[in-house]
């Protein structure tokens, strides 16, 4: 036993820090607690629990619908975004072709471009083709993900070319090489990127805010912001109801977090350290 481990302070301190961590999460934890309180209990400070807030949020305030919309939009963006990014990353990593460097530079440059410059033009172009207030209108502008393409290209470059060549010798087509050789090896990186895309799309706010006017197509973020701002009931804010809606909004990420945390951390740190 090392000497410092016998000091009681060194055994207690980490757990104290952990308590500090819980305190840090207190606002979020309390909001979940509050979502199970009755409105009266909340305002009078008594204890009385109910599922009524969830029933209201899901039923009268359409959060089941918003949840469904968010799943459809984030799911599609993730699948299509990953597919396009992986294909392009494979091309940039493995092929030398005229204009390839220029195109790759154009992809990398998107990492610097703030998305807000395209807000008004994207609104107008989608309006012109009648795609506002549709799932397509929410999904299409979010699909191209320069970061994922860049990240996966770097990853694929780390895979020995000999593996590709062996497959080509066996008569594989490039798509087959991508699918049978590259993708299986790059799976952890692709998975990290998939999580990354899914979470950013799930939490995306400004585009759904402008692109959707029809309540049936609200995503959770827009629905929650509106529920809070519009404040139904003309009276003091119904905080327990708002918190139930908020809990529904963070639920999928909350539930999945423990399982995917290390993949997320890996994605983020690899991106940062390059």
């Amino acid at each position: 036993m090392k000497p410092d481990e016998t000091k009681p302070g060194n055994r207690v301190l980490p757990w104290l820090a952990l308590a500090g961590g819980l305190l840090f999460l207190f606002p979020a934890l309390y909001s979940i607690f509050m979502s199970f309180q009755t409105v009266d209990a909340y305002y009078t400070g008594t204890l009385d629990f109910t599922l009524e807030n969830y029933r209201l949020a899901i039923g009268q305030f359409h959060f089941a619908r918003y949840l469904f919309n968010s799943l459809i939009v984030s799911g599609t963006v993730t699948v299509m975004g990953l597919a396009f990014a992986t294909m392009a990353a494979f091309a940039f990593a493995r092929f030398r072709f005229a204009g390839g460097n220029l195109l790759f530079a154009a992809v990398v440059a998107t990492l610097m471009i703030p998305s807000h410059i395209s807000l008004i033009p994207n609104y107008l172009s989608l309006a012109r083709v009648g795609l506002l207030d549709t799932y397509a209108g929410l999904i299409l502008p979010a699909i191209s993900n320069g970061f994922a393409a860049f990240f996966l290209r770097q990853y694929i470059r780390g895979i020995p070319v000999a593996l590709d060549e062996a497959a080509y010798m066996d008569g594989a087509t490039p798509l087959q090489v991508l699918w049978r050789v590259i993708v299986p090896i790059a799976r952890p990186a692709i998975f990290s990127m998939g999580l990354f895309i899914f979470i950013s799309e799930w939490n995306s706010y400004i585009w759904p805010l402008v692109a959707v006017g029809d309540e049936d197509l609200y995503t959770l973020q827009v629905g929650l912001a509106r529920l809070y701002k519009v404040n139904p009931g003309e009276d003091v804010v119904n905080w327990p109801l708002v918190m139930a809606a908020s809990t529904i909004t963070i639920l999928p990420i909350l539930l999945g977090f423990i399982f995917v945390e290390r993949h997320l951390v890996r994605g983020i740190t690899m991106g940062a350290v390059k």
Binding site: L124, A127, G130, L132, D133, G213, V230
Partner: peptide, 19 residues
């Protein structure tokens, strides 16, 4: 739709979108 401001804003936004 909300209050008067909301209607005005939503209507103006709806014109190019033909909605």
């Amino acid at each position: 739709i909300g209050n008067y401001n909301d209607i005005v804003a939503k209507l103006q936004a709806a014109i190019p979108a033909r909605r």
